[in-house]
Design a protein around this nucleic acid. Sequence first.
DNA 1: AATTCCTCCATTTTT
DNA 2: TGGAGGAATT
Length: 798
Amino acid sequence: MICFVTEQASPRISDLARADNGRVQTPDYLSGLNPEQREAVETTEGPVLVLAGAGTGKTRVLTTRLAHILATGRARPWEMLVVTFTNKAAREMRERISHLIGPDAEGLRWLGTFHSVAAQILRRHAELVGLQSSFTILDTDDQERLLKQLLEAANIDTKKHTPKSLAGAIDQWKNRGWTPEKLPPGEDFAEGKGQKLYAAYQNRLRTLNACDFGDLLLHNLTILSQNADIAEEYRRRFKYILVDEYQDTNVAQYLWLRLLTSSSGNVCCVGDDDQSIYGWRGAEVDNILRFERDFPGAKVIRLEQNYRSTAHILGAAGALIAANKERLGKQLWTEDDSGDKVRVRGFWDGDAEARMIAEEIEDARRRGIAYKDIAVLVRASFQMRAFEERFVMLAIPYKVIGGPRFFERAEIRDAHAYIRLIQSEADDLAFERIVNVPKRGVGDTSVSKILHMGRENGVSAMQIVRHLMTSDELPGRTRTPLTNFVRDLDRWRDLLKTGTPHWQVMETVLDESGYTDMQKADKTSGQTRLDNLKELVQSMQQFDTLQSYLEHVSLVMDLERNAEEESSSGSVQIMTLHGAKGLEFPLVFLPGWEEGVFPSQRSIDEKGIKGLEEERRLAYVGVTRAKRDARISFAANRMVYGRWQTQMPSRFVDELPIEHVEPQSDTGYYSPTPAQRPQSRWDDKPFAGSSHDTPGWKRAQASSNKAIYGDTGFGANLHGGNASARNTYAPARKAIVEGKARVIAPAPKPSGDWSRGDRVFHQKFGYGLVTAIEGNKLVVDFEKAGEKKVIDSFVEKS
DNA sequence: AATTCCTCCATTTTT
DNA sequence: TGGAGGAATT
C-alpha cells in the first residue's frame, strides 16, 4: 500500500536541499517509489508522458515530481505551470505540496484549473480582446438568458432551437478553439444563422464586459497567437509545465498548452487514455494518443503496478478494456492476489436488483464495513431513485453525490445579482434577474421594454430606468416601485463606498429589499434558503474585497463540496460513474448493466464505435473504483419512463472473463417454475461448459428468453414465431433495437382475461386472489404478502 | 399575480 | 412515471 510521504513524518524538502550543501542525494521522498514512478519523477528534462493506470499512484508521482523540481532548484515555485481539471484536484495538490515544501508552496501562483490559470493571464491582457480587466465571468444561467434574448431578436423559434442547445453548440465551438470568424462552414445552428448568432453573442458579451467559461481559454488563444512577444514572455516564465488528467483536454486547452510550451518543452502530461470519459463535452483522447508525435523524443512512462484493487478486480477490468481498439495499451498488475471474484448477477427486474443490493449493504454492514466505504455507481441519475427509495425504506443512510451546487441555487444567484448590480450598474443580466424579486409590481412587460430600450440605445437597463423615472412613458404604478428600487440601490452602493464590509452590505440588502421576508413567508423551503443565505454571508467574510469574492465564486464553485464530504462520512454513496472518477471504495455496486442503458443507446447512436468505446472506458472506470469487492448486476425488466421494458444484459457483462467472475443466479430472472427453466449461464451452475471465449451469454439468452416469454405469457404475441431465430448469434446491436421496442406492460392480450376472484400466482408474492382490475394492473390480495398492485403480466393464473 | 392545467420530455458535467 | 415549464384560467 502506498502511503504518501507527508506531514510531520517527512522532513521538509527545503530543509533536505539545504542539508547537503544544496545537493540532494536520494532524499527520503523518493525512497518509497517503484522504479517507474521514480523514473516519472526524475525525468525532469524534455517532454514526458506518464500513462498512469487506475490506482497506480498518479497523484503521488505528480506531487513528488513537482516537489523534486523545486527541491533540486530547477525552478522556483512561480516558474511552474501546473494545471488540473477540477478545483478539487488543484486544492488537494496544493495541500499535499505544502506539506512537502512548506511555505514555499505559497509561491505556486500558477497552480490551478485550466480556467483559473487562463483567467489570470486574461486579466493581464484583457484590453487586447476588447475587455476591461475587471470583466465578469458569466454563469450558465446568465448565458442562457442572454442567448434567449438573441434568439428572440433574430426571430428564431426558441422551442425548436432552445437557448440551451445554442449554448451547447457555442460551448463545443469554443472547445475546439473556433472564434465566430473561424467557424467552419459545416458547423451551424438554426439553418445558417449559427455564425451570426455566435458573433452577436460575442458582441453582447463585450458590451457587458463579460465572458463565459469558454472565452477564458479562447481569448487566451487569440492573445497568445497574435502577440508573439507576450507568448514568448510566458514561455520563458514557465520553465516546467505539468498537466494532470491529460486525456481530458479539449482542443482549445491543447492549443493553449502548446502556445505556452517552449521548444525545449519541459512538459509532463499525466493521464490514462483508458479513463477518458468526457469525450461528449469536447475532450479529445486523441491528444494523449498522439503525444509522441507532437513532442518528438518524448519519453513515455507507464505506471502499471496497481495499489488499489485485488487481482480479480484488475483482471476483470483489464479484460473489459482490452476490447477497445483505440488505446495505447497498459496491463495493470498487483501483488495483492487475495479477495473474491467480481460478482455478476442477473435479476428479474429493477426492484429485485435494488432490494438485493440493499440487503447486501446491510450484510456488509454487519460484517463491519462502514457505510461510507460502500458506493452504488450508476450510468445515469434516473437510475438513482430506485436505490434511494429502497434505502429510505430500510433506513440505510445514503448520500447522493452531485446534486445542485451551492452557487447554482436560485437564492444564492439572486443575492449575487443584487450585489453585482450594486457594484456595476451595467450588469443587465443581474438587473433582469432581480428587478422584480421580491415582487415589486414591475411586470414582465415593463422589464422587457426596459431591456429592449437599453439595447436599442446602447445603454444599460439601469440608465433607462433612471430616464423613465423622470418621464411619463411608464404608468405610475410601475414608476413608483422602480423609483424606490433605484433609491435603494443607490443607498446600498453608498454603504459599500463608505467602507461597510461587503458581507454586511449583503445582509442589509437582503433584509431591506424584502428578500428575507419573502423567504420567511415560504413555508416549504424558505428556511433552507435562509440558511443558505446565511452561509453565503459567512463565506463572503473570508474575502477582503467584493471583487475577489466574485472572482472566486465564478471560478471555484465548490464551497459545498467540503461540507458535503464531511457529512457523508457515514453514508452509502450513490453517484454516477462519471462522478466516481478518481475515487475508490472497498465495496462497489455496479447496477444496471443492460444493453441500451449501459452502454447507453444514445452514445452508440450518436457516436458509433467511438461512443461505445467511451462507454466501455466508463465501465472500466467503474470496476476499478473497487478495492476489495465489485458487484455487477443487471435486470431483465425495468420500468423506464413509466413503461416496462425488457433488455438484454450489457455486452460488457459478456466481456468479463470467467476466471475473475463469479456469476450468481436469481430465480426471479427465469421462468416462474424452476422445473421448466433451461440450463443457462446464469443458472445454479453458471458458466457450465462455457469458458471465456464462448459466447456463453448469447446462447443462454436464447433459451432463457424463451423461458421468460414462453412461460409468463407476455411477449408471446409480440415476438411471433421468430423469437428463436433472432437470438442465436444475432449481433447484439440488433437485439437492442428489438429489445427497446418490446413493450411488455400493454400487451395486446385483452385485459379481459382477468376477472375478479381469479386465483393467481406471482413470482415474489406467491398465491393470491384478484380483487380489482385497472387496465393492465391488477390489485391482488396475496395470501402471504397482503394486497399489492401488480402488472398483469407478472402473474399467472393458477 | 397566483393557481391549475397541460404538454412535453427525458445521459454523462466541469469550469 | 414524474418534473419542469408554458399556457390558460381565476
